[in-house]
Nucleic acid binder design. Structure first.
Lengths: 193, 193
DNA sequence: GTCTATAACGTGATAGAC
DNA sequence: GTCTATCACGTTATAGAC
């Protein structure tokens, strides 16, 4: 299974993803994507008849990417600590290239203004992300790399919420906000610095 | 200085505030507000010629409310612990009545899609909120009510980010997410349960 | 202060040629 | 698959009567 070439459909999703994390789902249009790619709006409607279809595919792709990430982590035999660092690296990259925010954050912020069919997909992505992090925290606790009080489930929620919030606050207060937050999480979580 | 009667201008701001935290700034229209209040769009344009004017006034009112809250806290002589509880109560009320989110969160999520004149006001509100919380944390540390490692400035950021994120995640995963987050923050922060 | 009326524009979406 | 052309609609915003 070789990786597919970036055909138009994938290019559309790439552009939409960028715009989503930049401005929000209802703040970009088919015209924006068309302009970015140098094509016409109608071509996008061919691949995604309604904007809700595009939105669902977008969230679904985040989910696939998470599952790929988990699979790769297992294959490479990443330690829990390396797993957390990889998760943080995703957030840092969001920030670096365009001051983007967490896709879950922006979609949840406008949750009541987006199609219901997308909301369902968002719930799955949210649950999957925190489930994965919970497992990572449990493994780290068992291996002695991590320390924390309370359940791994609770801690996963706290971490995801803080990172999501910090990415947004960084827009008003600058990038340091995110790095500061990640540093605090690591200081509390890691047994040995 | 008695509190002003809820004239049209204030009613507009009330309705707009509700809609902002429900759906986001660019996801409500003058028509939505007009319908809510039983008036016509043009009446709103009389009070707020452009939507950016409405947005600025909206954020400015949050700031005034924060300053009133701080003044009242001082007057009543609230303990740091009571201060934090009052802050959490605001978030809980957001959640309870319409699953609303933190105004800063939703505005930062669509930061790059809103008027620049609003962005400046948002930066002030963000800074003021965390400044206030920082002072509260310092006071609580000194009085022996709170415990935490690192600076009060850092801790204030972590708390604000977590609460902001939790309010959003609650939309996908339900209200428990917020209560869970607040409980964890308190358990880490309070010396005596 | 509030209204009616209207302008100017962008949006999502569809039909049909190529 | 992509295009041109077009539609129906909602949006912000303004002008002017009352």
């Amino acid at each position: 299974m070789p990786p597919r070439m970036p055909d138009t459909r994938n290019k559309i999703l790439d552009a939409a993803e960028e715009l989503l994390q930049e401005s929000g789902f209802s703040n970009f249009s088919y015209q924006d994507i068309a302009t970015d790619l140098g094509i016409k709006k109608a071509a996008i409607h061919y691949h995604f008849p309604a904007k809700a279809d595009l939105g669902v595919s977008l969230v679904h792709r985040y989910l696939e990417r998470l599952q790929d990430f988990i699979r790769e982590s297992d294959t490479k035999g990443l330690t829990p600590r390396q797993g957390i660092e990889a998760y943080f690296a995703v957030a840092i990259n969001y920030l670096r290239y365009g001051a983007k925010v967490c896709p879950l954050g922006v979609l949840e912020a406008e949750f009541h203004a987006i199609p219901e069919i997308m909301q369902k997909e968002i719930r799955i992505l949210d649950e999957s992300t925190r489930d994965w992090l919970q497992g990572l925290l449990e493994a780290g606790l068992e291996s002695g790399e991590f320390k924390f009080s309370g359940s791994a489930n609770d801690k996963a929620l706290l971490i995801v919420a803080a990172v999501q919030g910090a990415l947004q606050i960084a827009r008003a207060a600058g990038p340091k906000v995110l790095f500061n937050t990640l540093r605090q999480i690591k200081q509390e979580l890691f047994v040995s610095p």
